[in-house]
Amino acid sequence: MSEKNDYPVKKVSIICAKGALEDVYAALVMGNGAVMEGIETNLFFTFFGLEAIMTKYQDHLHTGTVGNPAMRLPGGARLPTMLGGLPGMESMVSKMMRKGMDELDIPGVSEFLELIDAGGGKIYACKLAIDMFKVKKEDLNEYVSDIITIGEFYEKAGGEGSHIIFT
């Protein structure tokens, strides 16, 4: 107990570079969890992770059904890669996952960003990725507070008890 409190986590800066449902949720759950604990929180979305902060795509994220050996069907049987590639499979599985999460009271992506912002967490987009994918500022969720460079990200990530997490 005392050991745990000797060096508390005071700030987390989480990088989300992938746009699959599970990668985005890893970042969002950790970010929101930190906010709820009163830990200063930065979320930095880059590369395909940008999908999570683009209003058009953020609430329709998919999980890959091909090449994921841990992908199982309800009942426990593995989903063979060949079947995972069938048209509509990814869409259907992703929809089922989103529904399952909603039933557990896990917020959707845009709602999660709103909750994180409400708790004082900061959400950033990577400038390089924005330029690369030709994303416009108006494509981004309203809670994205800024488009920043990696240098600016490190500046914000500093301080005692700070941690950087790459999901």
Binding site: N32, M36, D105, I106, P107, E111, L115, A118, G119
Partner: peptide, 8 residues
Amino acid sequence: ALSIRGIN
């Protein structure tokens, strides 16, 4: 169960 979403 309590959740932050529930509060909202």
